[in-house]
Computed example of a mutant assay.
Amino acid sequence: MSPEEFFEKFETFAVMPGAIDSLRYLIRQKAVSGGFSQGDTETWEIVAVDDLVQVQNGFAFKSSFFNEVQAGMPLIRIRDIAQQETQVYYSGEYREEFIVSKGDLLIGMDGNFNIHRWKGQDALLNQRVCRLLEPDPRIDTGFLFLAMQEHLDEIHRNTTFTTVKHISGKQIKAIEFALPPLAEQKRIVAKVDALMGWCDRLEALQAQRDTQHAALARAALARFAENPTPQTLQALFHDQFPINPNDLLPLAPPTSSFTV
């Protein structure tokens, strides 16, 4: 599919149930594979992450100094990297090299391998979270973000299933991807940002629509409970009023009604 066809059919794809995440994935995939490029992708340079950034692993802070009363410094664990605040603070001693600042790129190394920009205040980098530091002048951090998530997804898909999947700093450093010229990177990132913003708006509209439909479905259930007629029954199964089967259970007759 060409970029023109993609843009033309974007809204059709986006209104399908559960399609927003798939759209975001497709946008990232097309961005790093040249789908949004106006230049010759044959000139893109193949580079390794280790040649572009420093990969810093988090520190194994002692859990005996963990607390939930906000004493000391916020501590970034994997569950926190997409948030603005941490659940746990650390009240022990630490080295300044492990202080994360707003905007730093972080990668969760267990479970789902995701990259996020830190949104919160200064905090400490805990073990099993790594940070990408000192980007090479050849790379735009926005393009690095896109390329990393695409390849992290690929590693996750190809990792043998265990209770929890793991990735190492060595694996992250070894990731290779095609790097366009800096100006082209910036243009691609701007295009992706616009599309992701569109996805966000469509997702908000979907959530609003789903909320309205759920309210209508509850109203239809209430009408049927008060006045069980063929007409109110038909309203329960209207295509626009998706009903959770569990919501029907209170309306079901007791089991004793079916016994002799």
Rank of each mutant, 00 (worst) to 15 (best):
E5N: 05
E8D: 10
E11R: 15
T12L: 11
G18D: 08
A19S: 07
S22C: 09
Y25W: 06
K30E: 13
V32Y: 07
G35H: 02
F36R: 04
D40R: 12
D40W: 13
T43R: 14
E45Y: 00
V49A: 05
V49N: 02
D51W: 05
N57K: 09
G58R: 06
F59A: 09
S63Y: 00
N67D: 13
N67K: 13
V69Y: 05
Q70F: 11
P74N: 12
L75W: 06
L75V: 08
I76G: 04
R79Y: 03
A82F: 08
A82W: 04
A82E: 09
Y89M: 07
G92N: 06
E96S: 12
E96C: 13
E97P: 01
I99A: 06
V100I: 13
K102F: 04
K102W: 01
L105P: 01
L106F: 02
L106T: 03
L106D: 02
G108P: 04
D110R: 10
F113Q: 00
W118I: 02
K119N: 04
L125E: 00
N126A: 14
R131W: 03
E134L: 13
P135N: 07
P137T: 05
R138Q: 11
T141A: 11
L144H: 05
F145A: 01
M148K: 00
Q149D: 05
Q149T: 02
D153R: 02
E154Y: 11
R157H: 02
T160Q: 08
F161G: 15
S168Q: 04
G169L: 07
I172A: 00
K173H: 08
E176M: 11
L182P: 03
L182V: 04
R187F: 01
I188G: 00
D193S: 10
M196S: 04
L202W: 06
L202A: 05
L202N: 07
E203W: 10
A204D: 12
L205P: 10
Q208V: 13
R209C: 14
D210Y: 14
H213E: 14
A214G: 11
L216W: 10
A217T: 00
L221V: 03
R223C: 10
A225L: 09
P228E: 09
T229C: 05
P230Y: 13
P230E: 10
Q231W: 04
Q234M: 11
Q234E: 14
A235T: 08
H238N: 15
F241T: 07
F241S: 02
L251G: 01
A252F: 05
P254K: 12
